[in-house]
């Protein structure tokens, strides 16, 4: 049911963990739905230097979290804000229809982390 890319990111997730003294932290989802994603950012000169994640959730939740970290690293804050859940799903060669609602929150988590970064800077 999952694509090879999803299974790759699920079985070898990239950038798992936390960043100490992160510049921004974002968390979305909730336990009742079965998915929680937490994203940590390191930002230098408006460029995302490092991203780490922690996720409670199904295969799709873990794979989208992993993928969004890869997609965000190296982007400017504004570029990262343009990343969508759909783009993350597309980069994984798609997700099963049932997973679109609950598991595709990775870009939302990233945006929350950026929001948190902007607020803490302001």
């Amino acid at each position: 049911m999952y694509t090879d890319k999803v299974m790759d990111h699920f079985s070898n997730p990239r950038n798992v963990g936390e960043i100490e003294n992160a510049d921004g932290v974002g968390e979305v989802g909730n336990a009742s739905c079965g998915d929680i994603m937490k994203i940590y950012l390191k930002v230098e000169n408006n460029i995302i230097k490092d991203v780490k994640f922690k996720t409670f959730g199904c295969g799709a939740a873990i794979a989208t979290s992993s993928m969004v970290t890869e997609m965000a690293i190296g982007k400017t804050i504004d570029e990262a804000l343009e990343l969508t859940n759909a783009a993350v799903a597309e980069a994984l060669d798609g997700l099963p229809p049932a997973k679109i609602h609950c598991s595709n929150l990775a870009a939302d988590a990233l945006h929350e982390a950026i929001k948190n970064y902007k607020e803490s800077k302001a």
Binding site: V16, N30, S32, C33, I36, K38, K54
Partner: peptide, 22 residues
Amino acid sequence: REMSPLYNRGGKPLTCDECQIV
């Protein structure tokens, strides 16, 4: 568990008012 944001979290458990699933 090492990957889960709920592990070693401490503090209060998470709840969802929107879903009310269980």
